[in-house]
């Protein structure tokens, strides 16, 4: 009877997935109580939970998260809109594509963090520099996915637009963009995800607020619980951003799973 309920809920599988976290918790707690490691290097799970609660209560957590999200949003908007516009231009015009793609490919070879010294030298380490740094990271996935979507509009839709004499903005709005939409949404998801990754890195370079700042100052003050709390926050927000956009992606491309005439 109990077995049946287990099976129906897929509980067995879920329990299996809990083995590793559970063992880790035991080892972790055990290591702390047996004083295998210094309290400075490993804090017990409960302390971490307490730290998270205290950070949340004091408002530190939310103000740091908001500071980071604010940077992400601005950097993402700058980088992704640049990538979007350029992606459309390169997708629509073979001439623009041929002219720009070698340059884009060359610049793309440069690892994101190698730009940081350049940006700091040019703009200092203020807010604007961080926005630019995030924008560079957000730019590429948006550019590539928009380009793929736009250049991948099937010929048959181009023909249809020609027959019905669709031109310029009407053509773009009614045929090209809707057709490229799933790819563009993928671009937004990847682009936003990378922005969230890079904001933490940008904040390591020095700032007064943000999740990355919280972790770096935690490290300097040897508050390992704060550093670990930062990890939990990074993971949770990264997961949520990805999850929400993936839902959107599925929803928007849901109505048009490869369809070319079904059974009569």
């Amino acid at each position: 009877m109990i077995k049946k309920i287990f099976k129906r809920l897929g509980l067995k599988d879920k329990l299996l997935g809990l083995i590793v976290p559970f063992l880790l918790l035991i080892i972790w707690q055990g290591a702390v109580t047996k004083h295998l490691f210094s309290e400075l290097l490993v804090v017990p799970p409960l302390t971490l939970l307490n730290t998270l609660i205290e950070l949340a209560k004091s408002g530190d957590l939310s103000s740091n998260i908001l500071a980071s999200l604010n940077r992400v949003l601005i950097g993402f908007l700058i980088g992704a809109s640049g990538g979007f516009i350029l992606g459309i231009a390169m997708g629509l015009s073979p001439i623009i594509n041929r002219t720009l793609s070698p340059l884009v490919k060359a610049l793309q070879q440069v690892p994101e963090f190698a730009w940081m010294p350049v940006i700091i030298l040019l703009f200092g380490i203020d807010e604007f520099a961080k926005n630019i740094f995030i924008a560079i990271g957000a730019f590429y996935p948006m550019l590539f996915n928009t380009y793929l979507g736009v250049s991948g509009v099937p010929d048959k839709y181009h023909e249809l637009a020609q027959v019905y004499q669709y031109k310029s903005h009407r053509y773009l709005a009614k045929v090209i963009l809707p057709s490229a939409l799933p790819s563009i949404i993928t671009g937004i998801r990847l682009s936003l995800g990378l922005s969230w990754v890079f904001v933490v890195g940008a904040e390591f370079f020095g700032t007064e607020a943000g999740v990355g700042f919280m972790m770096i100052s935690g490290r300097q003050l040897f508050q390992i619980d704060v550093v670990m709390a930062g990890l939990v926050v990074i993971g949770t927000i990264g997961f949520l951003l990805n999850y929400v956009l993936q839902l959107l992606e599925k929803k928007l491309s849901g109505g048009r799973v490869a369809f070319d005439g079904g059974i009569a």
Partner: peptide, 18 residues
Amino acid sequence: GPGSNRGIVFQDHRLLPW
């Protein structure tokens, strides 16, 4: 060129899925 005085039905229905 194409004009509204001629209509076309392709072999594939070519309806826009969105």
